[in-house]
Design a binder for these strands. Structure first.
Length: 321
DNA sequence: AAGCGTAACAACCGCCAACAT
DNA sequence: CATGTTGGCGGTTGTTACGCT
């Protein structure tokens, strides 16, 4: 099958940005046809446009279609795009079918200009959704998170440490967002019990730095594949993060063990992690002196009431995927 | 105010699969 | 079955707006 001739190669066909007049002509023509385009190739002539059919189709599908949603992407949409991209790759049109009113082109642009960079800053390869190799991690001047002398273990923990260290300077609501992501990871990998035990201990002992390291440990070594490698979908843009509302995440455990029972298993943590976690505190405090202790964490054992629709959606979509 | 760099996004290009002839 | 046509897709480029020096 040879390459098809394209009307775009016709001489005298206009290219470049569309004028308001051209937009109006195209919209009115399609309206006249009852929203039915028929042949895009024949449309320009029928509508009186000096454009190729392909250009008309793109203009209509990406910009002029009445059901297109304009404006910024919501956090929810962003989370969904990341999750879909992790499972589908650059199948922009398929991804677009899951986001009402968004075009594949818009999503693709948003990915390339926003999300991709955000993931890179988090130490995640936006193509594979895996940790970037240590040598490719960007040096973070402010946080000092990418020392060229990192041990292999430390380098492997970079993305999570980045997320955890950022918690110290953010408000409680945002920490909850971060913690929710870890919880979703654990739940998705059927390790909810151990992680819930960690969190229970976090709340009961008040030794937050220690317990956050337990969390890091659990997330890194007990969780598989992609979910383990993404410490947070909450994003790294501080302005955006600061603007998060105060809705608290509501945790639903998918493990067989009831949440209340998990909360009574604080001792399990110290039995499971004592030496390794203590060691991780040591190296972490050595290599990341800027890591601030966490002075407040949500009581995750009592988050079963007041299900916020946003978090319900996040949880539901997470389980689906 | 001018020049420059960068971010954001609209639009184009080339390829491909499905369908028609 | 071979060939032509079309629409759709993903990658890339071009243009504009904006911020910084």
């Amino acid at each position: 099958m040879g390459r098809s001739p394209c009307c775009c190669h016709d001489t005298g066909v206009k290219k470049g940005p569309w004028t308001e007049e051209e937009d109006r002509t195209l919209v009115e023509h399609i309206k006249k046809q009852g929203g039915h385009v028929g042949s895009w190739r024949g449309l320009p002539k029928a509508a009186g446009l000096n454009r190729c059919g392909k250009s008309c189709r793109l203009r209509w599908t990406n910009y002029l279609r009445p059901d297109i949603k304009r404006g910024n992407f919501s956090d929810e949409e962003e989370h969904l795009i990341i999750r879909l991209h992790a499972s589908l790759g650059n199948k922009w049109s398929t991804i677009a079918t899951q986001l009402e009113g968004r075009t594949d082109n818009e999503i693709k642009n948003y990915w390339n200009t926003h999300i991709k960079k955000k993931l890179m800053r988090m130490g995640i390869d936006p193509v594979t959704h895996q940790r970037l190799p240590p040598e490719l991690l960007a040096v973070d001047g402010a946080g000092g998170l990418a020392s060229p002398l990192l041990s292999p273990t430390t380098a492997a923990l970079q993305p999570l440490l980045s997320a955890v260290s950022s918690l110290g300077s953010l408000d409680t609501a945002l920490r909850e967002v971060q913690l929710l992501q870890h919880l979703l990871n654990a739940i998705s990998s059927n390790n909810a019990a151990s992680l819930m035990a960690n969190l229970a201990a976090t709340n009961s002992t008040g030794n937050y730095q220690y317990q956050m390291n337990a969390l890091v440990h659990a997330a890194n070594y007990q969780l598989p594949g992609y979910l383990r490698d993404v410490p947070s979908f909450a994003g790294q843009d501080m302005d955006q993060q600061q603007s998060c509302d105060n809705s608290a995440p509501v945790i639903r455990s998918s493990s067989a063990e009831p949440v209340d029972q998990c909360c009574n298993n604080a001792a399990l943590v110290t039995e499971t992690y004592p030496q390794e976690v203590t060691a991780s505190v040591d190296w972490q405090m050595q290599e990341f002196p800027n890591l601030e202790p966490l002075d407040q964490l949500p009581n995750l054992c009592s988050l079963e009431s007041d299900l916020d629709p946003f978090w319900k959606g996040v949880l539901d979509s997470s389980f689906r995927l």
